[in-house]
Amino acid sequence: MILAFIEGERNPISPLCLQALTFARELAAGQGMPLEAVAFEREAGDLPGVLQRHGVSRIHRVEHPRLDDYAPEAWAKALAQLMDRARPQFVLAAATDRGNEILARVAAVKNLPMAANCIGWAPGSPPVVVRQRWGGSLLEEAALHAVPPLLTVAPHAVEVREIETQMEASLETFSPVLEEKDFRVRVVAREETHPEGVSLRTASVVVGGGRGVGSADGFRVLEELASLLGAAVGGSRVATNNGWRTHAQQIGLTGNRIAPDLYIACGISGAIQHYVGCKGSKNILVINQDREAPFFRRATHGVVGDLHEVLPALIEEIRRIKT
């Protein structure tokens, strides 16, 4: 049996979790094993309906009076207990903050190997996975020497697919045995933020700036262009390290992953740690004065030139068209 950890973040199942389910189902089919799922959250909408369409034959719903909000140690202990009872051959989750954390904890509790950000697998004994290093700039084939191995599935490793002929999924309640101490780490409060302007992660156009922008002031032309295009503004790590932008606006390995229709990258060289944050963009327009800048080799469109000349001229032309 293959067990998938379902994560809702209080909404009905996130897209990344559905991708992980598709990955888990293909693994299950390849191994000739049934797919089962474990869910902690109560408000997860029509869970059986959704999971059934993804080939899940049994759902373990974890019930405990104290499991009302996220408590990683308690969740991991509950999952470890369920594994003792249900004896899965693999355990999978989406490679989200929570998926990675819970599987790493279970791995630590049960002394099992865990492979984060997998994009593929090969059957055999021991099983082999393909996983991402460097945010996906490098791939690793790794063997997993224990049963059950724990895998998290990298975002966009597979496309979500539902199954054609679905069967009824049975719903079972699992009641873990937990103590007070298991709740020493838990969410004690939540704070909502309401970011102003267009959000980087969901924007359809992003204007990004790097060292070539030169200063915090230099970003004004980028902001102006962004406001004309309804775009969000981001930056490279050089821009955030210099305080020209906040870290929340950083694009890259240790910042945001963006996937707009168009990313306009100004004065950014295209280091891999930056590129992994924007490689999901449909189009990348690079503006750089160095025609040898590596970013041109990964862009769809390029302009060789000083951004402080090109952008003001572009802004003027867009204004002229708009009026």
């Binding site: 327009l285 690079v286 041109f296 469109h301 390029g302 302009v303 060789v304 000083d306 090109v310 867009i318």
Partner: peptide, 15 residues
């Protein structure tokens, strides 16, 4: 990358 030109002269193609 499709190169759209150099400096300000690239603006019409960018548009």
């Amino acid at each position: 990358a499709e190169m759209l030109g150099e400096g300000k002269a690239a603006v019409p193609r960018v548009i």
